[in-house]
């Protein structure tokens, strides 16, 4: 079933009267349970595509259906709710709040979802367990290593049990070992049914997905399944 369906999607940036094309007439369908890697050189429009798909930015034109709903008519508040309930985000720079504990960071989407204590703590604790950071739950995020930070980010992205997880270069700031752990988590989440959309410019990261979309100059250049998929660990989650 099509979770994401975009038709004729364009995004044009205008700065000081000069137009820059971000996306040009993109058609794309992503089904539930897919693990899609979007790759392309820098400036190709892959990040723009992720932003539009993640409802962080509105397209200039075109149609975007998410989970059977046409998002064009949604106002800012409704889009915020879509991001909150249906999407999870993992960023290259982790984007955790400093001077707040791991648990508090994971609670953020729950707060905006209107979930109250003690349910909030219960869910956050569950997420901490999932990414195996039990012994760091009360640490300030500034005290964590890069890999641990990204695991907190994944836990945060999962807090509201979203259908899709958008990951923007999730391994870009990590050493290869930590990166593998993160990719392992993403594969395990995908195995559990979450749809994953990942932006990367590294082919070994893209090879851990099931499908690769090549973007160039705002267009989909190539859309192909991964033939020899790299499975990081057959075990998935340890628990």
């Amino acid at each position: 079933m099509a979770l994401i369906s975009v038709k004729n999607l364009s995004k044009i940036y205008e700065t000081d009267g000069a137009e820059t094309v971000g996306l040009k007439n993109v058609d794309l369908i992503i089904n539930e349970g897919e693990f899609v890697a979007i790759v392309g050189p820098s400036g190709s429009g892959k990040s723009t595509l992720l932003q539009v798909l993640g409802c962080l930015d509105r397209p200039t034109s075109g149609e975007y259906m998410l989970d059977g709903k046409n998002l064009q008519d949604y106002n800012d508040k409704e889009l915020a709710e879509v991001r909150n309930k249906k999407m999870g985000f993992v960023f290259q720079q982790f984007n955790l709040l400093p001077r707040q504990s791991v648990l508090e960071n994971i609670k953020l989407p729950l707060i905006y979802a209107g979930i109250n204590e003690p349910e909030r703590t219960r869910v956050a604790q569950e997420m901490v367990d999932l990414v195996e950071l039990q012994d760091r739950a009360d640490f300030f995020t500034t005290k964590l290593s890069g890999g641990q930070k990204q695991r907190v980010a994944i836990a945060r992205a999962l807090a509201n049990n979203p259908k899709i997880i958008f990951a923007d270069e999730p391994t870009g700031s990590l050493d290869s070992k930590s990166g593998e752990i993160i990719l392992n988590f993403l594969q395990a989440l995908n195995d559990k049914g979450h749809t994953i959309v990942l932006v990367t410019h590294e082919s070994y990261v893209a090879d851990s997905a099931k499908r690769i979309i090549h973007i160039r100059d705002g267009n989909i250049e190539k859309d192909e399944p991964v033939i020899n998929r790299r499975i990081i660990s057959k075990e998935g989650f340890k628990r």
Partner: peptide, 16 residues
């Protein structure tokens, strides 16, 4: 700016 952006990405409305 980044904190605000992040909060919005995680579901904060303009009102929040």
């Amino acid at each position: 700016t980044r904190e605000i952006g992040l909060r919005k990405a995680l579901g904060a409305t303009n009102g929040d």
